[in-house]
Design a protein around this nucleic acid. Sequence first.
DNA 1: CGCACCCCTGAGAGCGCTCCCACCACAACA
DNA 2: TGTTGTGGTGGGAGCGCTCTCAGGGGTGCG
Lengths: 325, 325
Amino acid sequence: MTVDGFGAVTISDVARVAGVSRSTASRVMSRSGPASTGAQERVRAAAARLGYAPDPLARALASRAGFRLVIAVQGGSDAVLDDPYVDRVVRAAVDVAGPQGVGVSLQRVPVAGRDRLDALARDRGVRGVLLVNTTEDLLAAVPGALRGRAASIGVGARGVPSFDVDNAGGTTAVLRHLYAAGRRRIVLVTGPRWLPCTRRPVVAYRALMAAAGLPARLVPGDFTAASGRAAVPVVLERWPDTDAIVGSTDATALGVLGALRERGVRVPGDIAVAGFDDIPFAALSAPALTTASHHVRRMSAAVASPLLDGTRVPPETAYPSVLIA
Amino acid sequence: MTVDGFGAVTISDVARVAGVSRSTASRVMSRSGPASTGAQERVRAAAARLGYAPDPLARALASRAGFRLVIAVQGGSDAVLDDPYVDRVVRAAVDVAGPQGVGVSLQRVPVAGRDRLDALARDRGVRGVLLVNTTEDLLAAVPGALRGRAASIGVGARGVPSFDVDNAGGTTAVLRHLYAAGRRRIVLVTGPRWLPCTRRPVVAYRALMAAAGLPARLVPGDFTAASGRAAVPVVLERWPDTDAIVGSTDATALGVLGALRERGVRVPGDIAVAGFDDIPFAALSAPALTTASHHVRRMSAAVASPLLDGTRVPPETAYPSVLIA
DNA sequence: CGCACCCCTGAGAGCGCTCCCACCACAACA
DNA sequence: TGTTGTGGTGGGAGCGCTCTCAGGGGTGCG
């Protein structure tokens, strides 16, 4: 009712216009207590007439209920946040949280970022935290106040439920596919070593190769296309008989593809190339990449929604891989 | 000082421990007023010892200074938010805002979303709003309270400063490049019609073709790779003599590329393909896409930082295109 | 020595909301 | 008629912070 512009209308104004007390107006607006039908109608009418909408800040401060979902992506390097995988996680979360009136915040967390987690824990505006690509070290440092409000996409830890795609299974599926196609000298371009999700595929790869009596050939990468390009000369020099290269992401695989082609290597004639992730552009490459597809969006939604409802999250779920060949 | 766990330490606790008043402690913590060196030291020591960090919520409520930057992406359809262009904008904003302690929120805004804007205007937690891909209609509906706190990436409007890449210039550069390479029957696959940023390239295309005495050939698309694929049969049937196809995004171009290849059309032998945007994967396709690169991150950072500082944004800046051929 | 001035300080009043608690009817029971 | 409920209500005290304002103690100046 004041004149100083927009947004100056508070619940007191509504209460006054409706002829009830602030308490009653509040009860009606947040449907958090009894109110007679008459009071309800009058309050709603007044709110509509004044264009009132509760201030989420004040509400959160008073009710100590957060109103935003923070997606914390670990890693200062661009390489990781630039991963289309993260984009998909974010988008899915936005789709789930948006309609519920919960905002999604994006945040980078340094590898040694426990103080950032502390800040998050203290922030009363935070309804839940989605940790993406987190190391075990950091996960172990999740403060008590955040337990129950946090979930991890990637590796898990005590007290922090985790969700992940089936890294091992996906890798195995891709490798089996290559093996079935007659490939025997298979190189794996790994992800950044500090990332836990890099480990499982490596373990799966080692196990499978050992079981088949084949040599393990690993080249370090960092999920980027550039690291895929860089891997090619190393591979060709060190193991000239290589007949397949698997990237730890599709971007890596595309980098491999490009570098091989520049060198006149025929794909998949001489060397087959496979990726991991099924990014939208994997299908557009020529030849279309063999890759493992994951229901990232479904997973992200599954993680986000219990965080929003406050319901308990069933920990350690692995979302299955689907081979795209 | 209370026992009920984490985050229960308030500025009053700090003040008590430091032996000063709340006011002084607040002044020291927010460096918003005079304080003796002694007081400063004692307060800082107490804060450190207690592990105190100010609650952004309470701070925003009391000081009416927002603490998050909202990126509002218009369009309910996945097609638009899935555009890697948006991802780049978001990432750049995160990089700028994060270090300043400002969170970045992502939000979808329906095409008819003025009430969403009203809510944003009322939200005292919002420091600034970055509108992405917004229509003129919605931009005109930006409430007064948001003017000065909002900026648009894409089209502009009265009172809302806008930033954009040089769509017309980029398109012109790509077309000139094709022309110089001897191409004369050039098709443009457009973006979604409701998006203003689709218009400028079309106008530039029409002008250029008219000036060269060449026919204008337009096929509607929606920025996706799928729409690029879909455009190919249409083009081949309607204008069999086509010797170049320009996508309105790189995704579209990659779709075109794939569809052409499937039909055995040689690229660029029979038909040249060009894109627009320089997404990371454009360089990985074979042959590498001709495209127009934009400094999206630099632009996004330029938009975001004044929004954060509260300084005035110089309106209507066009970020130059760089031809990647 | 008195005045003005500046630096520092603490009390207190909010920011807009929720929530606990006491209160008042009125109905239902003995 | 007294007693125990009930659903509905308003007062008031916060949530954790900032900010204005009046006042106290120093310094500099005439």
